[in-house]
Design a protein around this nucleic acid. Structure first.
Length: 800
RNA sequence: GGGCGCGUAGCUCAGCGGGAGAGCACUCGCUUCACACGCGAGGGGUCGCUGGUUCGAUCCCAGCCGCGCCCACCA
């Protein structure tokens, strides 16, 4: 038998990945019997490549999927892509720019065609990277949020919401990104601290009795001021409420109004009101019926009803000019440094321009109420549990969602306008306006927020809105696993959409996994140069080692990447490989779990105990402890103790038969985490009935009830710690001897062990002599302490 | 500004009310016929600081010091 002493995953892994897929073992059969187990993969951006988050999440999901598949469940892991509106459009636009053209030059239709062409050539590489990680996704079922069926689902959802009366069109303040040239939702805005200058400007009272000073960080917006607001209880200003002031530069006469949203403690306590360019001002403006003037256009240039010398300036240039004007006219009180948080587009990093714009919005409150109920009742549970509250807090303060985007790549709104200003909403192009019958209809130019379609992922991928066998069989699913930043963008919205359209939750459990940070604790990012490519890890150490390492690192909080954990996985795979070599080189034997010797009973019991613990870990989504458990089972129990014990008797066929039975079970337990090396070893075992990937998960074994194994284990622990043997008899003694192989001269330092035990006895006696302890501590704690004391005394006696 | 979380061995992290743990790194010894990606032995920690609750605190509470994240309309 040619088995190299060093396990080399490269080549082996790819071979099994092809085999599993070619043999259809990843495929979920909708007609097959059994309970179902379903996970829909978070659809990666179609233009994206595998990063550490994907790799961790892929490892988590595949571990669960493989485990349940082995348990015999009808298991579906649904793959697919997200069209990622803004990101994808940006990639193609960049390419057009480098060719000296633009999407505007191409026109909408040609541009969209161009995106498709780009995707066919370069898109979707990440799915082959998932394959390389060993992810057993049902690749035949790959879906895309832009394929025909999915588009129908999106249209149906939109029309449904429209008919519910939850969609409306309105001029409101939006977060405008002048780089992406679209509005974005508040979830796509990140607040960054920025060094700014606070400008204090005097607005003269119309009656000539002095002035009011306001403070602003955006002097250019003075040109769009329509009022000055003060707090109604602010005694410095109450006498001025209702009076008029003159706005600098534009010389507009505007009123002083009272509003409780003004903070008297900030600046001068007087706030200039610019409804066209500030969210708070917008609300105040609406309540006071103020005009909404716009002086900055979609490109960030000055526009509108402004002095001609400002036309076309950038905001910064205009600000400079305004400040100069204030200085020249003695209305500049002071300027001071000011650091504060400012919204930026998380995609482009551009400072957000708040501006009033006509957009489609969705009132989320009705759907949020249903989602809140689902989470509060425990029908949907987040892990770790602290995330339940995070999700609930957001849902309970939910605001209307700006769903329209000023892009071309995406799902165009199913909204048509007639020349009379009527709106028709329909899944496909209507013949005529539903209100006036006009046939001169124009479709809304905008597309939907990418996350609008993502919300449908758990059921649109199964064929909704059609009534398909898949939809009936695989909805609702079981688990969804994702990163923290996706909780609001995606998880909450899937729950809302599932309840609204399917009448049921999309999954019962949501795993929020760690963010893997760079080794120095910073975020992994391309621009910082802190990113680590998981594909390189796979090439270097193997997919198994990478999966193991990532799971071992994972936690309920953020973790720093450490290569040590990956190397630990590699060592585990190598150890397992060599342990298997030992048995295979001794002679393959048909596995037979009829233990004759004590060490055989012992290892089978150990494996079964680990099986139970491992199941508990996986049920609790505790992948780190699951990995650790597998490591110790393999290294300590199977290799160091069991194999060393039976090594001298490997020429005996019965010994080997039981060893292969133990190895078989060990491989099964390891397979969900280390699928490749286990399947490779499995293929060398005699008389395989199936691939390991679909082999049945080990059944619980009958419990050893007489405690011999446990007693032997305790003795072994003491022996290994101190080199001291405690007295045993019968089977316990035989198991101990077989497993530990105590050496004749390895008696250890008996005096030291005695001293240690005496100290323990003293400590224990002191505790039990303490009346308050015996009176106040829980009875079982006191009993346990008494048992310990007895144990220590027995051990001490055993030493003579 | 509000909320959440974290500071445990040199490193990455478990443990979270009754004897300080793992892996790596380090030291020493092993070219033992599965594996030197190995085997055996060992050193190393006032569990961030200060108080409090408790018979007992790494674990609970408060404050402080450091670090991180999320939310947020003080211009």
């Amino acid at each position: 038998m040619e088995l190299a002493t060093l396990y080399r995953p490269d080549g082996v892994e790819q071979r099994w990945q092809r085999t599993w897929e070619d043999e259809g073992l990843y495929h979920a059969h909708v007609d097959a019997p059994g309970e179902t187990y379903v996970i829909a993969v978070p659809p990666p951006n179609v233009t994206g490549a595998l990063h550490m988050g994907h790799a961790l999440n892929g490892s988590i999901q595949d571990t669960l999927i493989r485990w349940h598949r082995m348990r015999g469940l009808n298991t579906l892991w649904q793959p697919g892509f997200d069209h990622a509106g803004i990101a994808t459009q940006a990639v193609v636009e960049r390419e057009l720019r480098s060719e000296g053209t633009s999407r505007l030059e191409l026109g909408r239709e040609a541009f969209v065609e161009r995106v498709w062409a780009w995707l066919h050539e370069y898109g979707g590489v990440i799915m082959s990277q998932f394959r390389r990680l060993g992810c057993s996704l049902d690749y035949e079922r790959e879906r895309f949020t832009m394929d025909d069926g999915y588009v129908r689902a999106v249209m149906r959802f939109f029309v449904h919401l429209y008919e519910r009366g939850w969609l409306f069109r309105d001029n409101r303040i939006v977060n405008w990104c002048s780089d992406c040239r679209t509005s974005i939702s508040e979830l796509e805005v990140e607040h960054l601290d920025v060094d700014d200058t606070l400008t204090y400007a005097r607005y003269p009272l119309l009656n000539g009795e002095g002035s009011v000073t306001i403070a602003t960080v955006r002097p250019a917006t003075i040109l769009a001021d329509v009022a000055v607001a003060v707090h109604p209880d602010d005694e410095r200003y109450t006498h001025l409420i209702g009076k008029d002031v003159k706005v600098p530069v534009v010389n507009r006469t505007v009123p002083i109004v009272a509003d409780e949203r003004v903070d008297p403690a900030f600046g001068t306590g007087a706030l200039k009101i610019t409804p066209g360019h500030d969210p708070v001002d917008f609300e105040i403006g609406r309540d006071h019926q103020l005009e909404e003037l716009t002086v900055i256009d979609l490109d960030g240039r000055m526009t509108g009803d402004i002095p001609p010398e400002y036309e076309g300036l950038t905001e910064a240039e205009a600000a400079e000019r305004v400040v100069q004007w204030l200085k020249d006219n003695d209305q500049l009180e002071k300027r001071e440094h000011y650091r504060h948080a400012v919204g930026h587009c998380e995609r482009s990093g551009t400072r957000i321009q708040p501006l009033v714009s006509l957009q489609w919005w969705c009132d989320m409150q009705p759907m949020a109420a249903a989602a809140i109920e689902a989470i509060e009742s425990g029908r949907v549970t987040f892990h770790p549990p602290v995330q339940n509250r995070v999700a609930l807090d957001w849902l309970k303060s939910i605001r209307p969602w700006n769903v329209s985007r000023q892009l071309w790549w995406g799902h165009q709104l199913p909204i048509w306008y007639c020349e009379n200003g009527h709106v028709t909403c329909a899944e496909s192009e209507p013949q005529a306006c539903t209100e006036c019958g006009s046939t001169r209809l124009t479709r809304d130019e905008d597309v939907l927020d990418t996350w609008f379609s993502s919300a449908l992922w758990p059921f649109a991928t199964l064929g909704w809105p059609d009534d398909t066998p898949e939809l009936r069989r695989y909805y609702p699913g079981d688990v969804n696993s994702t990163a923290r930043e996706i909780i609001f963008l995606w998880e909450a919205r899937m729950v809302m959409a599932g309840l609204e359209l399917m009448g049921d939750i999309p999954f019962a459990d949501v795993i929020i996994h760690s963010t893997v940070l760079a080794p120095d604790g910073r975020r992994m990012s391309k621009s910082l140069g802190t990113g680590i490519d998981p594909v390189e890890l796979i090439e270097q150490h193997g997919a198994d080692a990478t999966r193991y390492g990532l799971l071992k690192m994972s936690s309920t909080q953020d973790v720093r990447f450490s290569a040590q954990q990956i190397e630990e996985g590699r060592r585990l795979a190598n150890k397992l490989w060599n342990a298997s070599r030992l048995l295979l080189l001794a002679g393959a034997e048909r596995p037979d779990a009829r233990p004759e010797s004590e060490e055989e009973r012992w290892i089978l019991a150990r494996i079964d105990a680990t099986r139970a613990e491992l199941e508990a870990d996986l049920d609790a989504f505790d992948f780190s402890h699951a990995a650790e458990r597998l490591y110790h089972l393999t290294f300590d129990d199977f290799c160091d103790w069991y194999l060393e014990a039976i090594k001298p008797r490997l020429d005996d066929a019965r010994t080997r038969a039981t060893a292969f039975a133990a190895l078989e079970r060990l491989l099964k337990l390891l397979h969900p985490v280390l699928p490749h090396v286990t399947e490779e070893i499995w293929s060398h075992l005699p008389e395989r009935e199936s691939r390991l990937i679909v082999a049945p998960w080990p059944e619980p074994q009958p419990q050893e009830t007489n405690g011999e194994i446990e007693r032997a284990q305790t003795a072994a622990r003491i022996y290994r710690r101190s080199g001291v043997r405690i007295a045993l008899e019968g089977d316990a003694e035989r198991i101990f001897t077989a497993v530990v192989r105590p050496t004749e001269n390895g008696v250890g330092d008996i005096e030291a062990e005695r001293a240690r035990l005496r100290k323990e006895v003293e400590r224990s006696e002191r505790m039990l002599a303490n009346e308050k302890f015996v009176a106040n501590a829980a009875p079982e704690v006191v009993d346990a302490e008494r048992a310990k004391l007895q144990q220590y005394r027995a051990e001490l006696d055993a030493l003579g």
